[in-house]
């Protein structure tokens, strides 16, 4: 079987804009799930609201498209009632970190056995480009017309301190690494967060000089620095180039988890 067999072809093409990174992330997720040999009937995809959260609607398995920010609460419910099911959550930065922020930290704390894939495009895409907790400083959005002056949530760092068992970050350019990270997340008992930086050419790119899709993906590639390299630079006291974000596996550990099948 191939990852393409998991798609509901009658639903394709997706409603996503030209060059939206969400499609790439779904490809990688389905590839990981398919490589592990999971069955459709044993796998549930859960999401909240947002462009990213439309992902389960394109997949053949059972799924829950829930209320905004509450995907993790629904997913926890599934895990407690049916620990035998594999639960994978698709969410956006607004869905996970803004309205769903509390569910996020407490799901990490409880370490519920699920894999959460957050498509972080730095903005509320679906509602037309409002700033989110991950909007970079200085970025133009409809709610920050003079440039955002707020600090930024580092979702991966947040998940690490809140207690998740596995946390990794990649971008929509790093398809191979991302697929491998998702696979590790799926295999790790307990809570796993895979943060994927993706392009949203429509709501974010258009306002922030990243209108061209290929250029944006290249921007993601050029501004990603491997965690190991970052640590080495810090250790050697060398300057870390500005505007860079770290990618790689931040943690893999074995804290007691909830909802793991006996």
């Amino acid at each position: 079987m191939s990852f393409r067999d998991w798609y509901r072809i009658d639903r394709l093409p997706t409603i996503y804009c030209v060059g939206c990174g969400n499609g790439t992330v779904i490809n990688c997720t389905l590839h990981a799930v398919d490589t592990l040999g999971w069955k459709w009937e044993e796998t549930v995809f859960v999401s909240g609201i947002g462009c990213s959260s439309r992902a389960p609607g394109y997949i053949k398995t059972d799924s829950l498209h829930t209320t905004h920010g509450r995907a993790l609460a629904f997913a926890t419910g599934i895990k407690l009632a049916r620990p035998d099911l594999h639960v994978v959550v698709f969410t956006g930065d607004g869905d996970l970190a803004a309205i769903g922020g509390n569910h996020f930290i407490h799901s990490c704390r409880r370490n519920v056995d699920m894999t959460v894939i957050c498509m972080n495009n730095w903005i509320y895409g679906m509602t037309g480009g409002q700033g989110s907790p991950t909007t970079p400083r200085g970025a133009i959005t409809t709610t920050t017309p003079y440039g955002s002056g707020e600090g930024v949530f580092d979702l991966s760092a947040l998940a690490v301190v809140a207690g998740a068992n596995h946390v990794a970050r990649w971008t929509s350019y790093h398809v191979k690494e991302l697929t491998r990270a998702i696979q590790t997340g799926l295999e790790t008992p307990g809570f796993s967060l895979i943060e994927v930086l993706t392009q949203c050419p429509t709501a974010y790119g258009r306002r922030n000089k990243l209108r061209d899709v290929a250029e944006t993906v290249e921007y993601l590639k050029d501004h990603a620095i491997l965690l190991q390299k970052y640590n080495r630079l810090v250790q050697e006291g060398k300057p870390v180039p500005e505007d860079m974000f770290t990618v790689g596996e931040f943690i893999r550990r074995n804290r007691p988890a909830m909802g793991v099948p006996p």
Partner: peptide, 17 residues
């Protein structure tokens, strides 16, 4: 198995086969 396959994986619209 698929060799390379980068284009198919990154294609956001599942258009390459």
């Amino acid at each position: 198995r698929t060799v390379c396959g980068l284009c198919q994986m990154i294609c956001p619209d599942q258009a390459i086969r």
